Computed example of a mutant assay.
Amino acid sequence: MTFLYIQRYIDIASLQMKKAFFQLHISVFLAGFTGILGRLITLNEGMMVWYRLLITALSMWVLYAVFSKRLQKISWQDILKISAVGFTAAMHWVTFYGAIKYANISVGLVCFSAVGFFTALAEPLILRKKINRTELLLGLITIGGIYIIFHFDTEYKTGIILGIISAFLGCLFPIFNRRFLQRINVETVLTWQITGGFITLSVLLPFYLQQFPVSRFLPGWEDLLWLLVLSWICSVLAFRLTANALKHLSAFTVNLTYNLEPVYGILLAFMVYNENQYLSRWFYLGFAVIIGVLAFHVFLVIRSEKRAKALQEELHPDEKITL
């Protein structure tokens, strides 16, 4: 009887895992689409992220505080900590869109794959657990793929550097969010994170614009339309899906799955902007290495699940499971 309850729990957990993976992949596709939006929106990267955070923060407060009333009361200490994570997320987006604008969509997106390497190092340090050598090796191979592109396509140097900085910053907030989500609901974490990111970026923005002056501060009608898509679809919806997935998946799995973001984004860039005409064979070689890493990780996950099932059957060969 005890085994039946354990098996039922495992089946429920498996269903939750499948749902989490589905939500994660929808979020990854939306993240890939942000690369297209980064080029469609003509504002510079700092102003673009500032408007994104403004629209997203206002939308979340209206949606979660006024209508659904899903916001929890949390301490000022938690608000400050979540806001600090929000600033990290804001700077991740600034450097990400900077990579796209200084290079192109494909280069900016493929550099984001370095997030797996940084996660393999940062997650054990932050969560105080043993480093997984397999994860670290996969991350190092990904870095090797990016190096192939960097070494032979030097015209994209600035964009690649910004992309790698973006990947480092991008590995941090999923790790911290996972800890917050163990005791605070998704809506509260995301609302305060986006709000904190907006406030801290607003303080930094005047100094940023002194170094990178812009000719205009207000978006045109077309830019405003794409900013709404970026904020409502690719932010509010995508963040919620990713946060839900983090409840059942490790930060490394989430970040490594986000290596599909370049796949979706680059395919869109090929279709919309014909970027394949401007990329050398070294880009495709480096990209192939990164895709190989992702495929191998999927193989390892599937093999691990099969071994776990085989072990259960070996231990209880005659058990019939009835849900």
Rank of each mutant, 00 (worst) to 15 (best):
236 V>Q: 12
252 F>D: 06
86 G>N: 13
215 S>E: 14
6 I>G: 05
39 R>D: 08
163 G>C: 07
262 P>Y: 05
119 T>G: 10
18 K>C: 09
160 I>S: 04
160 I>V: 01
176 F>I: 04
127 L>Q: 14
210 Q>M: 05
70 R>M: 15
267 L>A: 04
112 F>E: 07
130 K>R: 14
314 E>L: 11
289 V>C: 12
91 M>F: 15
280 S>M: 09
191 T>S: 04
106 S>T: 04
35 G>I: 00
297 H>M: 11
292 G>L: 13
255 N>I: 03
51 Y>W: 12
313 E>L: 12
241 L>F: 05
93 W>G: 00
4 L>N: 15
273 Y>A: 13
98 G>H: 02
162 L>Y: 01
196 G>A: 02
274 N>R: 15
233 I>H: 09
270 F>P: 13
98 G>N: 07
130 K>L: 11
183 R>A: 06
280 S>C: 10
98 G>Y: 01
111 C>G: 10
303 R>D: 07
14 S>V: 04
186 V>P: 08
262 P>T: 08
55 I>R: 05
128 R>L: 09
226 W>Y: 08
185 N>C: 01
204 L>F: 13
171 C>R: 04
54 L>V: 09
37 L>E: 02
135 E>N: 11
59 S>I: 00
92 H>V: 02
238 A>G: 12
5 Y>R: 13
65 A>I: 05
323 L>T: 06
140 L>Y: 04
85 V>I: 09
175 I>N: 08
118 F>P: 11
89 A>I: 09
143 I>K: 06
66 V>M: 06
102 Y>G: 07
198 F>M: 15
301 V>N: 12
245 A>D: 02
173 F>P: 06
138 L>S: 15
252 F>E: 09
211 Q>F: 09
126 I>A: 15
109 L>V: 08
198 F>A: 13
86 G>C: 14
218 L>V: 12
88 T>Y: 10
164 I>E: 12
322 T>Y: 03
53 L>P: 12
136 L>G: 02
227 L>T: 00
166 S>P: 10
24 L>F: 01
301 V>E: 14
307 R>G: 08
282 W>N: 14
144 G>E: 12
261 E>S: 10
271 M>E: 04
157 K>G: 02
56 T>M: 05
253 T>R: 07
53 L>S: 13
323 L>K: 03
230 L>W: 02
164 I>T: 07
294 L>N: 05
102 Y>D: 10
264 Y>D: 06
243 A>N: 09
134 T>K: 03
55 I>G: 02
138 L>H: 13
116 G>H: 00
87 F>C: 14
83 S>P: 06
300 L>A: 03
77 Q>W: 03
68 S>P: 13
4 L>I: 14
78 D>S: 08
310 A>K: 15
16 Q>L: 14
123 E>I: 03
119 T>P: 14
237 L>E: 07
78 D>R: 05
147 Y>P: 09
313 E>N: 11
42 T>C: 10
251 A>M: 05
59 S>H: 03
191 T>W: 02
49 V>Y: 04
155 E>Q: 13
12 I>R: 06
205 L>T: 14
77 Q>S: 12
158 T>N: 13
